[in-house]
Design a protein around this nucleic acid. Structure first.
Lengths: 344, 344
DNA sequence: ATACATGGTACACAAGTCACC
DNA sequence: CGGTGACTTGTGTACCATGTA
């Protein structure tokens, strides 16, 4: 912290015995002070502490890790970290882990690629992380559990529950159902859907929620428009929808898609929300400032990250492998100006 | 990788001597194989390798770090990781570091807070990272160099050059000058500026570039509108500008601000670009899909991250402290439909 | 005789911990 | 309370002796 490198006369960074010598105590006593052993006279403790400060002594992490078999590090395997969702989750993870004294090693794996993810996991395991947090889309790997190191506590913060692993996830289905129901309530007789990237649990669940709501209302779902997570895909879908006079409402799988949709509809002179209502999913910070402000579903992803870390810390502390717990975070409908009753 | 935990008969994970025993060689030979020592018979090498595979042996990172004094880990101190800019840089950093065999420990420090950053640095240093990469806004710390651990290779990937440290940064000034010049060329007699968050080098430099261009054209700069990095601040600025008939062009310090501006102007019935031209900075993925598509400045931040890692790796390998190098990444003007000639 | 390939031993790295006084 | 000494964690490595080609 001071920048000036305090060291022993010998020139090398101080070690525990240097502290002991300086404080006039033994190796053992310094260790007791450092690890909060009860039977240490306050005066001794203070003398040791002073020696530590004067020498600028810092415990060597590697040596501790070697003997304690703990690194106070958790590995995080994530994908698509440039997207708003994943990056929010990661932020929550990093903060919560840091607050608990753990560092996070992030390893991004670009694809929905099972072997890629497993390779990252192996690398992190080799690095000696105490636990593992997965946020990559993994629903395609039903036997994931068997492919992970058995002795490495692991939790998921993904789109949905993962077989055999504790996980935290948002109830995307409920969120999508809620927006769709909103539109139906406002009088729309048909609601279209622009899907997220194939292979993502989030995409499948949101589509599922949309279907659920339609089914409950007795409306037959029109074909899903092939999508993705970006504005470009939304734009393409929007151009297609603009030419269809029957369309009065569109549920997009995320806000970026909705942004692209809005652009395409405006370009074609289709008024939102008077002729077509549009909704998103995520509530990205800028979605309140689109034209018109976007009706969407807010999901507290930082909380998902926090809770996932909490779950992991429980495993790290408890040691006992209780049944895998699945925590569900409920999203919240945010109604803005991009939705309204259909034209008559 | 297999998930089945291969271990010695004793039940504990295999260590080097287990491999040696199994291969019928010595401790020393295994080590030589592992570290690529030249004088090893191919046949022996193979026998050792087979033993390693059969036992599922993995070298213990902590033990290696203890003796080699290298962890193959770099620490990254970042702030505002939820913003598009920082998160792009981080992505480049993570990928480049991973490709070079280094893991990254991310430590986010929320504020433009010098002590906060230094605390993160100290924690990472204690963790035994081999090098440090700073992406937090740090121009306020002219004597930063003296406050950092002297023996820890450190580079910056920030808004601008940092005294005494190697760094990679985008030439924000040139970027801002280029957009401003574009507007002047198109005939605008006055160009306003909505600034970024105070305390950020990026914000200061972009404002500087705007001023430079105006000065070169002999135009007196109107007061900067207080800003930030979010759409909300842009919206506020936009409401103020909408009422000013003299305003025909606005340079925003980033795309989010521009998005807020567009929203406010549309709300007030001000046509973009026919009455007012608007530009951003960043070229976020969705900026091509705003209405109208945003003229902006693209900066290759992933490259900034990559190059910063490259600089760091040089220091880690070379050892020799050459003069701090500053690499500058030149941004690129992206002209879209949000700009045009002023109304006559 | 001269490389090369390997074994054996010993110690270092820095901290944690146990038994005993 | 706290000192002493010995031993542990898993690798890296220097040194020196061997054996083989």
């Amino acid at each position: 912290m001071t920048g000036t490198e305090v060291a022993t006369p010998a020139g090398r960074p101080p070690v525990m015995t240097d502290v002991a010598r300086r404080a006039g105590v033994s190796h053992q006593t310094v260790s007791r002070v450092l690890n909060g052993h009860p039977s240490i006279r306050p005066e001794t403790r203070e003398r040791v502490q002073r020696a530590i400060d004067e020498l600028g002594y810092r415990r060597n992490r590697a040596a501790r890790a070697l003997v304690t078999r703990r690194t106070l590090t958790v590995g995080v395997v994530a994908s698509s970290t440039s997207l708003f969702g994943p990056s929010s989750t990661l932020h929550g993870v990093e903060r919560a882990a840091h607050a608990a004294g753990y560092a996070t090693i992030l390893s991004t794996s670009d694809a929905t690629d099972r072997d890629g993810v497993l390779a990252r996991v192996a690398q992190l395991s080799d690095r000696g992380v105490d636990g593992l947090l997965l946020t990559a889309p993994l629903h395609e790997v039903p036997d994931l559990r068997e492919h992970l190191p058995a002795d490495l506590p692991t939790v998921c913060a993904t789109g949905g529950p993962v077989t055999g692993l504790p996980s935290v996830h948002v109830d995307h289905r409920a969120g999508a159902r809620a927006v769709t129901e909103l539109l139906l309530r406002q009088g729309h007789r048909e609601v279209r859907h622009v899907g997220g990237s194939p292979g993502w649990f989030e995409a499948a669940e949101r589509e599922g929620g949309w279907r659920d709501a339609l089914a409950a209302a007795g409306v037959a779902p029109a074909p899903v428009l092939a999508g993705g997570w970006g504005a470009a895909e939304g734009y393409v879908a929007g151009l297609a929808l603009a030419d269809d006079p029957a369309t009065t409402a569109v549920v997009a799988a995320n806000d970026q898609l909705a942004l692209g949709l809005l652009r395409a509809l405006r370009e074609r002179g289709v008024d939102v929300p008077r002729r077509v209502s549009v909704t998103g999913f995520d509530d990205a910070p800028e979605s309140a400032y689109l034209s018109p402000p976007l009706t969407t579903v807010r999901q507290d992803l930082e909380r998902v990250g926090r809770e996932a870390v909490g779950l992991l810390l429980e495993r790290l502390a408890g040691g006992v492998a209780t049944a895998p717990e699945h925590r569900v975070v409920v999203p919240e409908l945010v109604v803005r100006a991009s939705t309204g009753p259909p034209p008559r």
